[in-house]
Design a protein around this nucleic acid. Structure first.
Length: 390
DNA sequence: ACTCTGTATCAAGACGGT
DNA sequence: CTAATTGATACAGAGT
DNA sequence: ACCGTCC
């Protein structure tokens, strides 16, 4: 669930760390994209209710393909606008997350039962809703997505652990301009810039600037991490009775979770003495120190070791894969590719001149044997000084 | 009255022809 | 050995 | 701008 209620909290307490920007602002920039969240979105969105069953996009073998359709279109949309996407996939989640993951798994199993129940009753609207909640990404679906994106010429990164943490590392290393995700814990991982709103074409994109946020909150990074843990993160239970509002006040007053725990014990002891119920409940295993560790020094591949290269699409193999194996219509692929070919003639050409690299080499942690030397400074568009809105 | 928290529930895309 | 997305909103309930 | 379809 990311960080619970962090967005609402920031809107209230740090309203000046937001900017709204139009798509063309990002032309020529490199953006790290959280792949798994996007895939979920597309898989859910491409389900529909038939007369007696749920309809999902699949290939001839029954493997789902909705995520491929979505990622294909989204990637072309980026490229068409001169934006260079880096798709970052999750690796193995940290052990601390297993409790949260088990909880989600259980919810999905319950949704599966409800789906079948609704189908029997013929309540197709309910069946669709419940079926959407059962959506999971299999390794086949993930591999298909990686294969397709590589054939499109995009660099792929399989993070050792959390994709958000890897994006934050890339952004701090200057390899990407920003992290694009709806997941707020990218900020807890200290990404300098977070972008939200690429999902909907209509609305402007929101940019959250870490430095502005931390200044406006008047917190150190360590304190911000503690705040996020107290708000509720994926790694440990929170203290019952403390939400974002009081967590913020208490952090200011007592500096860190250790200080707050001391205060909490004192308050509770006082109330017990007066025959009142304790005000706060600290979880029996409050693993805040381990959670801190995961946020502050997450397992990532070093930014300097990563080389991002965009290639022209491998049209032949892309078509072979999508048409023959995945059942795509050829005209859709042709139309899509036309869109980015067109772009080569237009205004952004100068900035796009170095867009396409020469080799097809893609580096990710699985290649640890073929270790490329960390070379070259990465390009980064100059921060255009005065493009403020709102 | 007001503030805060916890729980449940919802919604989440893009193309192409008309 | 398998699986593993999320934020926003509305409402009820507890505490001040 | 709407709406069926995308696989």
């Amino acid at each position: 669930m990311g960080i619970h209620q962090l967005m609402q909290f920031l809107k209230e307490k740090a309203p000046n760390c937001f900017r709204t920007l139009m798509l063309d602002y990002f032309a020529g920039r490199t953006i790290g994209c959280d792949a798994s969240m996007a895939m979920y979105q597309f898989l859910i969105q491409t389900q529909s209710a038939g007369q007696t069953q749920i309809i999902e996009l699949t290939d001839k073998d029954g493997n789902r393909t909705g995520h491929l359709v979505g990622l294909f279109n989204r990637t072309l949309q980026f490229l068409e606008n001169g934006i260079k996407p880096v798709w970052v996939f999750d690796g193995k989640p940290p052990q601390l997350k297993s409790g949260e993951l088990a909880r989600r798994k259980k919810l999905k199993e319950e949704a599966q039962v409800k789906t079948e129940l609704a189908l029997e009753k013929g309540d197709m609207q309910q069946a669709l809703l419940q079926n959407q909640r059962t959506t999971t990404i299999t390794s086949i679906m993930k591999d298909d997505a990686i294969k397709m994106l590589k054939l499109l010429g995009c660099p792929i990164i399989i993070a050792p652990c959390e994709a958000e943490a890897q994006c934050a590392e890339l952004c701090r290393a200057g390899k990407i301009y920003a992290t694009a995700t709806e997941d707020m814990d990218a900020l807890t991982f200290r990404t300098p810039i977070l972008l939200r709103g690429f999902n909907t074409k209509k609305e402007p994109i929101y940019e959250i600037i870490y430095d502005d946020m931390i200044k406006e909150l008047e917190l150190t990074y360590e304190q911000f991490v503690d705040l996020c843990i107290l708000c509720g993160c994926d790694y440990t239970e929170k203290i019952e009775g403390i939400g974002p509002g009081t967590a913020y006040k208490l952090i200011k007053e007592f500096k860190n979770i250790e200080g707050i725990l001391e205060h909490v014990q004192k308050v509770n002891a006082e109330r017990v003495k007066n025959n009142q119920n304790p005000k706060y409940t600290v979880p029996s295993k409050f693993l805040y120190e381990d959670s801190r560790e995961l946020f502050i020094t997450p397992q990532v591949q070093k930014g300097e070791e990563i080389q991002l290269i965009w290639n022209k699409p491998d049209v032949d193999n892309l078509k072979k894969f999508l048409i023959e194996e995945k059942g795509f219509a050829e005209s859709r692929i042709d139309n899509g590719l036309k869109r980015i070919a067109k772009k080569d003639h237009t205004g952004f050409q100068s900035r796009l001149e170095n867009f396409f690299g020469k080799t097809t080499k893609i580096i990710h942690p699985n290649n640890s044997k073929a270790k490329g030397k960390s070379n070259k400074k990465n390009e980064q568009p100059q921060k255009s000084g005065g493009k403020k809105k709102l």
